[in-house]
Every structure is written in structure tokens, then in C-alpha cells.
């Protein structure tokens, strides 16, 4: 683990989807699926990103351009250096033999690494991934080449199921043999997945996003109500049973000053 940021060269920056790039680095971070690194852009800040690929001697982060920090990052390419610190956080447990992984938008990124690892262990992995439109869908070629079963959903119906990916989950769990669900995406979507799993009594794990500053459990920015769990250290992955105790799940989150606000 890198306690301080280690300046690493970007091997390549690949267009993954609209406004979304995958940044490849050579070297090992030894991350488990669901863990994240703090990416430092000197002068622009430091933000957490889930690891989306990990292969022998290299790893990658898939990042959507959403604000000032990612705008700066997207200007960088092969040979430019950024600081990589971590990995941090509690990973997915990899429990279950017949599992559904359900990702919304770039929430699919950490689940794709989980899909790789679980498929490698011989588990039956069904990946359900949703996005606003076809142009935002991630990793179609990657999943085609793997043993992972895939279902796509788009809000505008431009590819796969027209509608929310959670509707595909409802169909999938009807089969009755799903024994574990892993989820990452917009919180409103995760609440829906939580409800489906809870009703069907299927255990699950969810990767939460909150305003993180330090990334290793001391600043208190990302703590949850009312348990006080730290998303960066006690999470970002929480079980369904844990989330039953998190009142703020699906309701609100805090900003960088600590003020409560909308999701």
C-alpha cells in the first residue's frame, strides 16, 4: 500500500464511453475489488476513484468527466504523471456462487473488476449494467470476451432494455437461484436494488459514495448517520444488513463543509 501518493506515469488514456476514459498505469497496487485509490493532481486536488482493471503488472481507473478536477485529469495522457495513494477501503466480500452485479453509470467500473475476479474463481456472474444511453455504456467488448453473462439497460432504449437496470434485476431474481447481489451506482438506484434484495431476502453489498477528504479514516468528512461509520475506512462497501442501520442512505449526504444536502 502507498501511504503517500506515488507519482506514476499514465501508460495510456483510453476512451471508454462518452465523457469517460480509462487511465492505465503500469505497476501493482494490490487492490481487491471494491477498493479505491486517492488520485492526486498537484494543484487540482485529490479524489477517490475505484479500481476498474487489475492485470499482471498493471491497473486502471475508469473515470467520468464531471467537474473541474476530472476536466484537468482529462487533459493528461501517456507519459504524464499523477499521484496514486492507497488502495484504501473495505472490498467486496466475493461471497456467493450465482451472483448478480448491478451497476449504474460509472458505478459499473468497480463491479467490472469484481466480475473479472469472481468469473476467474469459477462463479456464475451476471452483470447488469445501465446507463442514460448507449454512448455511456461501459465495457461491452470486455464483457463479450469474458465468461460473464451481461444484460444492458438504457434510459432512452438506444441499447438493450429500455428503462432502468433495476427492472432487469427484478427479472433476474425471479429465477430464484441468485444467492448474492453486488451493487454500485447512483444512490437512488442503489436504494431500489436494496429494496428488491431485502424483499427477496437475497444478501447483498453496496458501494457508497460520500464526500471524502483524507481517504483513510481520520478527517470525518464521509461518516454516515446515525452509526458514524466512515465510508472511506468502514466502507465504501457495506452489506445490506449494515445499510438497514444507515438512516441517511437514499436520503441525504454532506458536502465538504459538513452541511447536509441532496443526493
Amino acid at each position: 500500500m502507498n501511504e503517500r501518493p506515488v507519482m506514476m506515469k499514465i501508460e495510456k488514456a483510453v476512451d471508454e464511453a462518452k465523457d469517460t476514459k480509462t487511465f492505465w498505469f503500469s505497476g501493482r497496487v494490490g487492490a481487491k475489488p471494491g477498493q479505491f485509490v486517492m488520485l492526486w493532481l498537484p494543484g487540482s486536488g485529490q479524489k477517490p476513484f475505484g479500481i476498474s482493471y487489475q492485470e499482471r503488472g498493471s491497473f486502471a481507473l475508469t473515470i467520468r468527466r464531471v467537474g473541474g478536477f476530472t476536466k484537468e485529469l482529462f487533459k493528461l495522457g501517456t507519459g504524464d504523471r499523477v499521484g496514486i495513494q492507497g488502495p484504501y477501503g473495505k472490498p467486496f466480500s466475493m461471497k456467493g456462487d450465482n451472483v448478480v452485479l448491478i451497476g449504474g453509470g460509472y458505478g459499473t467500473a468497480p463491479l467490472a473488476l469484481l466480475a473479472d475476479e469472481m468469473a476467474r474463481k469459477g462463479k456464475n456472474v451476471h452483470m447488469i449494467t445501465g446507463a442514460a444511453g448507449k454512448e455511456f455504456l461501459l465495457y461491452q467488448k470486455r464483457f463479450e470476451k469474458s465468461k460473464v453473462k451481461t444484460t444492458y439497460a438504457t434510459d432512452d432504449g438506444s441499447f438493450g432494455h429500455k428503462g432502468f437496470c433495476t427492472e432487469c434485476l427484478v427479472d433476474s431474481v425471479k429465477s430464484g437461484n441468485i444467492d448474492y447481489v453486488y451493487c454500485c451506482g447512483p444512490e437512488k438506484m442503489m436504494v431500489k436494488v436494496f429494496e428488491i434484495c431485502n424483499k427477496k431476502e437475497i444478501p447483498g453489498e453496496f458501494s457508497l459514495e460520500r464526500y471524502m477528504k483524507c481517504g483513510f479514516g481520520v478527517c470525518g468528512s464521509c461518516t454516515l448517520d446515525p452509526t458514524g461509520w466512515r465510508v472511506c475506512k468502514d466502507g465504501p462497501v457495506f452489506t445490506l444488513e449494515q445499510l438497514k442501520k444507515v438512516d441517511e442512505f437514499g436520503k441525504y449526504k454532506r458536502d465538504g463543509s459538513g452541511k447536509k444536502g441532496k443526493l
Binding site: E3, R4, P5, M38, W40, G45, Q46, K47, K213, C214, F216, V218, C219, S221, G256, S257, G258, K259
Partner: peptide, 26 residues
């Protein structure tokens, strides 16, 4: 309300921690 300083705000190097959080509070 104060946003505090931009990240990184806390770093560790062995037995030393350094911070400049900048009094972020609502």
C-alpha cells in the same frame, strides 16, 4: 460556513502526520 483547504489536506509519513484541513465546517 468554511469549505476548508483543497485536498490533499492530510498526509502520513511513518510516525508523522501532517494536516492543513483549514477549519472546514458548516
Amino acid at each position: 460556513p468554511r469549505k476548508g483547504h483543497k485536498t490533499p489536506i492530510i498526509q502520513v509519513d511513518g510516525d508523522v502526520m501532517i494536516n492543513a484541513v483549514g477549519y472546514s465546517n458548516p
